[in-house]
Measured scan of single mutants.
Amino acid sequence: GSLMYASIFGNVSAIIQRLYSGTARYHTQMLRVREFIRFHQIPNPLRQRLEEYFQHAWSYTNGIDMNAVLKGFPECLQADICLHLNRSLLQHCKPFRGATKGCLRALAMKFKTTHAPPGDTLVHAGDLLTALYFISRGSIEILRGDVVVAILGKNDIFGEPLNLYARPGKSNGDVRALTYCDLHKIHRDDLLEVLDMYPEFSDHFWSSLEITFNLRDTNMIPGSPGSTELEGGFSRQRKRKLSFRRRTDKDTEQPGEVSALGPGRAGAGPSSRGRPGGPWGESPSSGPSSPESSEDEGPGRSSSPLRLVPFSSPRPPGEPPGGEPLMEDCEKSSDTCNPLSGAFSGVSNIFSFWGDSRGRQYQELPRCPAPTPSLLNIPLSSPGRRPRGDVESRLDALQRQLNRLETRLSADMATVLQLLQRQMTLVPPAYSAVTTPGPGPTSTSPLLPVSPLPTLTLDSLSQVSQFMACEELPPGAPELPQEGPTRRLSLPGQLGALTSQPLHRHGSDPGS
């Protein structure tokens, strides 16, 4: 009898404990919600809404976190579960008819179910419309201010047509639940991603989709105040780019002037030289400038040598048109050559190039014969006009050509200096018209024969001689050997007369 009593008592207590286990969990969670309300000092109306929603959600799901349970299964099984949970929507909604099984599984994985109690606001006026909503159960109302403009029910759709707008718009009203509602919502990016994977279904979906109420604000059109608020930074940046392009296009129409201050000032006329910023005076940081632009901040801005204009002085008759350009485009679109090309026009420029290279940067340069637009006047290309890779490749080509020119210049200078040193070592320090008596009659020769300089066969020296023939050397430049009979510069000019005159010897006659 005691054994029977113990078994009955144990079973009854276990049954009672299981009955009250759900209630215990409910009270535990309710205590957490109330502690949250007390800690954050939530006001009474919002506090009442929180408690009511918790009670309804507990009775609806029995305190089970559906998302946590669903995430515990593998992905393939999750797709089947989501397809079952959203079967009513996918079967009865017209846009989803005719979709393949794979497309429906992908869509079912992207849908999220939302449960809303009465009085809950789903979308506020001015919120971004980031999702498309399908009503599965219940009814909602749409308000503009305090005026109800629409009441939607089961199988209705609200949001915005995503295929017509590249960016999400703003809501033009509040969406509030009238009863307990079940909503299926899919985010904008998720829907577009699935439709991109199934393009054959995309056309059918957009053609058959009928949005019951379009929440997009109709005033959000390009150029409206609301649109400016939504895309303020983007609009200002776009206007700045367009104004920069218009100014650079105007600059290219004036090829007669070359400016070292950047493309923003290349198009300024002579009357605007004294102004601080020219056409860019209202925004000094709008356009890029070269490193020399920092010198323009000092006094005497109108007389600054940074602004270059072609000189009108005539060229000498024998002067060549100019050196070879550094870039391939210089032959086609440049009416002034790079300062480095002028360094190779003569030997005198070679000796004085490194010492006063900055001073020569603004000297007169030889002109190319074609009066085409200036290379320095070409505006900086924006990322939309020329690819970045093209600019980098041009810079690399320019750097390689500069290296080759520097190597060639160093070799030419070394060769010229070597020839000058050899000339100085071969010439005796001094010569006299009267020579010392020699031991015999073989001493009648006034000077030792001097062998002429070897013929220069280097390509670089031939180019130097060509430049010497075309360029007029300055007075202080050293002379180079030329073709024809060679003669030492330090010898007297009348050596031929010395050989014809008898030598005057000093000596005593033994017979006297």
Rank of each mutant, 00 (worst) to 15 (best):
A411L: 13
G355C: 04
E200L: 03
T179N: 08
S410M: 09
L420A: 06
R386M: 12
S348E: 10
G493S: 10
S272K: 04
S381H: 11
E331I: 09
F353Y: 07
P161D: 06
G511N: 08
R360G: 07
P310S: 15
I151G: 01
K239F: 11
G281L: 11
A497G: 10
L458R: 06
D203S: 11
P428R: 09
D182S: 10
P454K: 12
G269R: 13
S290Q: 14
R238Q: 13
D396T: 09
A477K: 12
R422Y: 05
E231W: 06
G126C: 01
M424E: 07
F351C: 04
T435C: 03
K332R: 13
F311R: 14
V427W: 14
H504Y: 11
L402A: 05
N214V: 03
N403Q: 13
P369D: 10
T179C: 05
Q501S: 12
Y431K: 07
S500P: 11
Q421A: 09
C181M: 01
L340V: 09
Q399N: 05
D329P: 11
T407P: 04
D127S: 04
T499Q: 14
S136K: 08
R400M: 10
P449Y: 12
T179G: 08
P263C: 10
L398T: 03
L491T: 06
G269V: 13
R167M: 04
I135L: 06
R176N: 03
F213G: 03
E328P: 04
P314A: 10
M220G: 08
F134Q: 01
I151E: 04
M197S: 09
L375C: 15
G126P: 01
L129Y: 01
I135F: 01
S443P: 11
A131F: 13
S286L: 01
N403H: 12
L209A: 07
I221G: 12
P492D: 11
R394C: 06
I350G: 09
T252Y: 10
L128F: 09
F205R: 02
F351A: 12
V148Y: 02
P314M: 07
E406M: 06
D335H: 10
E471Q: 07
S508K: 10
E160G: 03
G322A: 14
V391M: 15
A260T: 14
P284E: 13
D146N: 12
L308I: 04
P279R: 15
F201L: 06
R400G: 10
P452R: 10
R216Y: 02
G323E: 13
V416M: 15
P371F: 10
L409S: 06
H204N: 13
G173V: 10
D189W: 08
S462R: 13
H184D: 03
R247M: 13
L340C: 09
P449R: 10
P222L: 08
T436H: 06
L398M: 15
Q254P: 10
H506D: 05
I142Y: 01
A266F: 09
L209S: 03
S312E: 09
E257I: 09
M220L: 15
P255L: 10
S171F: 01
D296N: 15
G359M: 10
A343F: 04
E253N: 08
T212Y: 01
L215V: 02
E160P: 02
T248I: 12
M197L: 07
G223S: 11
